[in-house]
Nucleic acid binder design. Structure first.
Length: 355
DNA sequence: AACTCGGGGAT
DNA sequence: ATCCCAGAGTT
């Protein structure tokens, strides 16, 4: 496959207008590219950059990541979301150490065998780190190709995705693969944007089917929308006489998997029942609850109304430090991997109200 | 094939 | 408020 007009025009644009100075563009090892790719899944570049820099400082190579305590990895992910990414990241680092002698594989199949690496991320590593030809298909590329070829339908649909992959393969050149891969993502992020694309600045305008029809707004097709359910929960700040707060580790799967959070209680409890519920469920001796103003946190598929309450705890009976629970001072808790709204709540309860 | 998994930025 | 983002894993 030789570079067609698509790739040539794109590369010329990239040379003049693309992003050439992102943190993972320096010292392009497979490790550094891989971490950037995982962080960038469903997360915008500007959000990722500070996390990436801190992560690289703490885990400079695959061995340091493989050997780290999982809570250390999660704390560096706190606020990024999709926490399974962090757990899979460390799992893959351990696999690289144990099964690949600490060196990242450079084939599609071997890379996809690592937890958290799918077709597109494997291709990005092959292209960016190893300079070998491989086609990527992320959100930016999907938008560019859906418009260029006027591919109808929502890319989440298997048939649409299949067509987009075919176009991705067809346009990917064998020369300058790093620049092409970065360039098509940059074009999607900077020119072929979701709304009000800058078609007059686009190097692909001439061949773009959506532009020719003045229908860039129709591509890619939008996701069928569903109403998000509303859920409610109590979250209790149980504080002992030394000012320590009880934290609870969430189960490895499900929302906020593996993170430390506040104990939750069924919203069916009334405020007047909280004290007794805490005492019965956790074996604690609690005082009267002090209600904190509630707030709403929105996930991709539901809304969660969080109603916090603070209860003083007397004595040392009841739940102690173990694998699932910890009594920690505020500043110690903030060093753990916490869900974003819990971090806000512990940092500044008043600010949480504004969310 | 449909669903799950977060949080933030853009609009 | 809604949509989307350098997607992958599970069911």
């Amino acid at each position: 496959m030789t570079a067609d007009c698509f790739a040539e025009n794109l590369l010329k644009w990239y040379d003049n207008h693309g992003r050439h100075d992102l943190p993972w563009h320096h010292n392009r090892t497979a490790y550094r590219i891989w971490v950037s790719e995982i962080m960038l899944q469903q997360t915008q570049v500007a959000t990722v950059i500070p996390y990436y820099l801190a992560f690289m400082e703490r885990f400079p190579d695959v061995q340091s990541l493989a050997e780290a305590p999982v809570d250390d990895v999660l704390s560096h992910w706190s606020g990024l979301g999709y926490y399974a990414r962090a757990r899979n990241l460390q799992n893959a680092a351990q696999t690289v150490m144990d099964e690949f002698g600490g060196a990242f594989p450079d084939t599609q199949e071997a890379l996809e065998s690592l937890k958290g690496i799918g077709r597109s991320t494997a291709a990005a590593i092959i292209a960016q780190a190893f300079g070998k030809r491989a086609a990527i298909l992320d959100g930016n590329v999907k938008r560019v190709l859906a418009r260029y070829h006027a591919v109808p339908g929502w890319p989440g649909q298997t048939s649409v995705l299949k067509q987009l992959w075919e176009h991705a393969e067809e346009h990917t050149p064998s020369e300058r693969i790093r620049d092409y891969t970065q360039g098509i993502m940059d074009l999607g992020a900077m020119v072929c944007t979701r709304s009000r694309p800058k078609c007059n600045d686009c190097p692909l305008q001439k061949g773009c089917a959506a532009y020719a029809r003045k229908e860039t707004n129709l591509y890619p097709g939008s996701k069928p929308k569903k109403a998000k359910p509303e859920k409610t929960t109590w979250m209790v700040i149980l504080e002992d006489q030394n000012g320590r707060i009880l934290l609870e580790r969430r189960p490895p799967n499900g929302i906020w998997g593996g993170l430390w959070s506040l104990p939750e209680l069924d919203p069916a409890y009334g405020a007047d029942e909280l004290q007794e519920a805490c005492e019965r469920n956790l074996g604690l001796d609690c005082g009267e609850p002090e209600l904190i103003s509630g707030f709403r946190h929105t996930f991709s598929h539901y809304h969660l109304h969080i109603q916090p309450a603070r209860l003083g705890v007397t004595g040392q009976q009841g739940v102690r430090d173990n694998g699932q629970h910890k009594w920690l001072h505020r500043h110690e808790a903030l060093a753990l991997g916490l869900p974003a709204p819990i971090r806000t709540l512990l940092t500044n309860p008043e600010q949480a109200t504004l969310l």
